[in-house]
Design a protein around this nucleic acid. Structure first.
Length: 432
RNA sequence: GGAGAGGUGGUAGAGUGGUUGAAUACACCAGUCUUGAAAACUGGCAUGCCUUCGCGGGCAUCGUGGGUUCGAAUCCCACCCUCUCCGCCA
């Protein structure tokens, strides 16, 4: 959520915030009418509030007089009669002021964050900027297979039966496949908690709608999450939701910042609107495991810590010897709440392309304002902190990357050295 | 699921219809004292919104949402959460 007060500030010299924000909406490829709508509605909201408050002020004043009269055992019946009328009026005025307030609030919740100034302007993923590439794309002297084929032949992935048991976009991991997934989770959590200074967390996998509004998933992207019938409960699309809301409505001590968490959770996504995309294999499932990095930071440190967090995710890829590149997303490809996002893309020889395996974003105060998470500066009013998060990494896609990058001509798959201790010393997966 | 207790400021904890935004303590900040610190003493110390160039003024907030009343932290209703006992359960 953006600060509505900034929209009203007059420009001094440079472009006003309103103009800047209008431009940033255009850069994202969204329409800007909503801004004028908000400004207009807000004007009305203020008028109504002023009106209602004046009436209430009078009401309070007279009530005090009545109290005084009663204390002196004098007659107050005429004042009380008058107030009966005013009370009804106040109720109406409050109702319309409240409604206007809700309208403004709702509109504010539906507009995206403003990208940082140096984020490249662009329309689609094609306009993202390659920041760096690490490792060289794996090449084989034989035709590379896709992970789905490899996994089924090895007997470690079973899409077929998952379709029977649940439906499309689900999988059974089996034998060494299940073990590999488990090893990856353990490996990632260990690295982040022991080497990178994050406190580990296993959050609730179900959250309420307030939490989803706090992170920015609601109200705009309701259709992307699974709802539990009969409850205001939702399966989390990412651990970002419960972990960000861990501190909602709280004021943290400035000296306690930054707070760094790494969280394991399964993630559930309805994938509404992606019918026909990545229908084969593990790339786009309704359920997948992820280790998430999450930082609550002082605004002055958020940029630096965002770089650092991204590096922490990269360390996992490097330890697993997986070739990847870091992309700075352009305005048109960024997520709704983000001010700056790096995607890490891992090389998949089976598909001969890089695929997203991590997304690291700086939300600045966008989520903090929605979720009301503040810190108290040494000598001052509480202010919104900044939130950062990134995948460290998407576990399912990491498994994909290992299968494809460590495959051999005979269909067996090697295990990266760093992971072997987590696999009980297993060095390769062969058909069982 | 049944019975009971409770949710008040950063924390603990008073307050059962009328100057209660809320006693008190702790924490925190500033000052005095001190070589410095501690202690002691003095003062300050909620958040959001509306209004004002500013000083300031106003409104709201005692789990959430409704209701009663001229007036609600206080009374009524619903919901949420926490705790205790019983039942059930990994």
């Amino acid at each position: 959520m953006i600060d509505i007060k900034l929209l009203e500030k007059k420009a001094e010299g440079g472009p006003s915030y309103l103009d800047e924000y209008r431009q940033s909406l255009l850069n994202r490829g969204s329409s800007t009418e909503i801004l004028d709508q908000i400004v207009e509605l807000n004007k009305r909201r203020k008028e109504l509030i002023t009106q209602a408050e004046q009436a209430k002020s009078r009401q309070n004043k007279v009530s005090a007089e009545i109290a005084q009269l009663k204390r002196n055992q004098q007659d107050a019946s005429s004042l009380i009669a008058e107030m009966g009328q005013l009370a009804a009026e106040v109720k109406n005025m409050e109702a319309s002021a409240g409604k206007a307030d809700e309208e403004v609030q709702y509109l504010l919740l539906t507009i995206p964050n403003k990208p940082q100034a140096d984020v490249p302007v662009g329309k689609s993923a094609d306009d993202n900027k390659v920041e760096k590439a690490v490792g060289t794309p794996t090449k084989f002297g034989f035709p590379a297979k896709e992970h789905g084929d490899l996994g089924e032949k090895l007997g470690i992935l079973d899409f077929e039966r998952a379709g029977k048991v649940t439906g499309a976009r689900f999988t059974f991991l089996k034998g060494a496949g299940a073990r590999l997934e488990r090893a990856l989770i353990q490996f990632m959590m260990d690295m982040h908690s022991m080497k990178h200074g994050y406190t580990e967390m296993i959050p609730p996998f179900i959250v309420n709608s307030t939490s989803l509004t706090g992170t920015g998933n609601f109200p705009k992207f309701k259709e992307d999450v699974f709802r539990l019938e009969g409850f205001d409960y939702y399966l989390i699309p990412t651990a970002e939701v419960p972990v960000t809301n861990y501190y909602n409505n709280e004021i943290l001590n400035e000296s306690d910042l930054p707070k760094k968490f790494c969280a394991y959770s399964p993630c559930f996504r309805s994938e509404a609107g992606s019918h026909g995309r990545d229908t084969k294999g593990l790339i786009r499932q309704h359920q997948f495991n992820k280790v998430e990095l999450m930082v609550f930071t002082h605004p002055s440190q958020s940029h630096e810590l965002h770089e650092q967090l991204t590096t922490h995710a990269e360390k996992i890829l490097e330890a697993l010897e997986l070739p990847y590149r870091r992309m700075l997303l352009c305005t048109g490809d960024m997520g709704f709440g983000s001010a700056r996002t790096y995607d890490l893309e891992v090389w998949l020889p089976g598909q001969s392309q890089y695929r997203e395996i991590s997304s690291c974003s700086n939300f600045e105060d966008f989520q903090a304002r929605r979720a009301n998470i503040r810190f108290r500066p040494a000598n001052g009013k509480p202010q919104f902190l900044h939130t950062l998060n990134g995948s460290g990494l998407a576990v399912g896609r990491t498994l994909v990357a290992i299968l494809e990058n460590f495959q051999r001509e005979d269909g067996s798959v090697g295990i990266p050295k760093a992971l072997q201790p987590y696999m009980g010393g297993l060095t390769e997966i062969r058909p069982s």
